[in-house]
Amino acid sequence: MQAESSRAWGLAHHFDNFEQQREASYLGMWVFLVTEIMFFGGLFTAYVVYRSANARAFALGSKELDITLGAFNTAVLIGSSLTMALAVWAAQQGKRKQIALFLVLTILLGGVFLGVKVVEYRAKIDHHLLPGPDFHFPVTEVDEILGVQEGNVEMFFNLYFAMTGLHALHMIIGIGVLLVMVVLALRGSFSRKNHNLVECMGLYWHFVDIVWIFLFPLLYLLGRNI
């Protein structure tokens, strides 16, 4: 058994070596992401169930969303995934300054995404599309004949706000952690051997990106052809 004093800095006492430590945190992060899949999964289930019954109402709701801003945000988030991947790439080679640089870029792109989201939310609130007592959506006679009720469109916006809100919350938490990691990177806490935190955070950030990759078509695109 290694004596405590001769152990490398950053290796916890109960692991034999860095490899075991790395594999443990990597597996732990993936298991956590599976819980996240199931967490969002509940909302996706609600979406599938309600859309299967009210496809037209959902399409009407979808058309109220700004497809340009949605597509722009998709591109921004994918870009942030690229910079995050490059931060991990820099960490794997122990390039401290580049880690910090790519993390800052990721944070900036994440900030842009959230900024656009605020603009979108404000527009929806101004148009009385926020669920609750103020919600108002004029349903045309034709649509009424086709079985659309105002409440069904409200359900679309229930899901829109719940899903994008939960997604945005994940981004805010992610940006908070990334800020801490920029400081750690500049202090030189990450090395070629020990950069689990960067790698795990990368996995988290990409996961958040993937959720959006599904939210974008489900909320913004389906039903555009009607």
């Binding site: 609600a46 309600y50 109402a57 669920p131 069904n152 359900m155 706000f161």
Partner: peptide, 11 residues
Amino acid sequence: HIGIFDPAVGG
């Protein structure tokens, strides 16, 4: 009032 299970809005 985000009524995902609310029958009034088709929930």
